[in-house]
């Protein structure tokens, strides 16, 4: 028998951004082993900006080399780095006044221990550079090594930044009991203590009456119900598509429920035999084969991992007019 899922996923977004007339040359220069500042009035800003930070006025791009040496003006020692930080071992984030710049750059300093204000540091470029702020880091001047950097070809006009947020949680209490019931070959719903309506799967609360529900509100439902709506899907082949043959996705109103279970896949029945009003019974997989791993806290109702098929009961069809209002 399958285990109850523990939710652990990384929500990722690959952001691509155009770089513009100031960040473009700045990032191109980093790839090519140089740091640029931007003239703004009589100051040199690093990082350079397209606007005057004091007034918001547009500044015509006028980029000048700064660094590679600089002086730490402030720092913090990061004793427990995150996986998003530039170094796995403790390091310093510092404000660094690069030689020739009037505003400090915030960046990482790789050092054996806390870095005091006043410390001279030197830029070091990574072997693999992509035109990003992470192409460079800093070390105390004495630890710097000479580097010969071969410039790249094309200017950096696009940056790619893959962000990811890891989410880890248990199934919510009701979802846990619901998933366990499926493994046991049963369907668990909840009866609203206020309206008496039965929801399956429940969200753990009645969103119509706005009351929380507890284990005391749990009710088992029969594994027999009526088709209230369906769609026949002809899979289009795209990257990642695993379906090949047409199949039906339907909603079934279980006997005794006030809300249909949606998203149930049917592979061995076809219209016109399959229709709204058809009475169906769940044929469960053997206990050892049941799998609820695709359930999470938001998606999934009765996954294919727990049933072999839904078979017609042979009872007369329900008049579709009686099912209006349940079509999802």
């Amino acid at each position: 028998m399958g285990d109850l899922p523990v939710i652990d996923y990384t929500l990722s977004f690959p952001y691509t951004r155009t770089t513009g007339p100031v960040m473009g040359p700045f990032l191109t220069a980093l790839r090519d082993g140089q740091i640029l500042g931007g003239r703004c009035g009589d100051r040199v800003l690093c990082p350079p900006l397209e606007y005057d930070p004091d007034t918001g006025a547009e500044v015509a791009p006028d980029l000048v080399p700064v660094g590679p040496g600089g002086t730490v003006t402030g720092s913090t020692w990061v004793s427990t780095p995150t996986e998003k930080h530039p170094f796995a071992e403790p390091f310093a984030f510092a404000t660094i006044a690069l030689d020739g710049a009037d505003t400090p750059l915030i960046h990482a300093v790789k050092a054996p221990g806390p870095v005091e204000a006043g410390t001279r540091v030197m830029a070091q470029f990574r072997d693999e550079r992509v035109g990003a702020i992470t192409d460079v880091y800093f070390v105390p001047e004495a630890d710097a090594v000479e580097q010969t950097i071969a410039p790249g070809d094309e200017p950096v006009e696009i940056t790619e930044h893959l962000i990811g947020v890891r989410i880890q949680e248990d199934l919510y209490p009701f979802r846990k009991r619901y998933a366990q019931a499926l493994l046991d070959g049963k369907i668990l719903g909840q009866r609203s203590p206020k309206s008496g309506k039965v929801y399956v799967p429940s969200r753990g609360y009645d969103n119509m009456e706005r009351v929380p529900m507890t284990e005391a509100d749990d009710v088992f439902l029969p594994d027999i119900g009526t088709v209230v709506s369906f769609t026949e899907i002809t899979p289009i082949q795209y990257h990642g598509q695993t379906e090949t043959d047409p199949y039906i996705r339907c909603a079934i109103l279980l006997d005794g429920a006030d809300q249909p279970v949606t998203g149930i896949d049917i592979r061995d029945l076809r219209p016109p035999e399959f229709k709204v009003g058809l009475r169906l019974r769940c044929v469960w997989r053997p206990p050892a084969e049941r799998d609820v791993s695709e359930l999470d806290n938001r998606m999934g109702a009765i996954p294919e991992g727990v049933y072999e098929r839904w078979e017609p009961t042979g009872e007369p069809d329900v008049n579709p007019d009686e099912l209006r209002g349940q079509a999802w």
Binding site: T19, G74, T76, P86, H107, A108, T159, H161
Partner: peptide, 20 residues
């Protein structure tokens, strides 16, 4: 997103710089 986020520059580290 160009000069800070790729460094994983987090509020705790920035609060450290402020405190410093």
């Amino acid at each position: 997103p160009y000069t800070m986020a790729p460094l994983g520059l987090d509020p705790i580290s920035l609060a450290g710089l402020q405190a410093d």
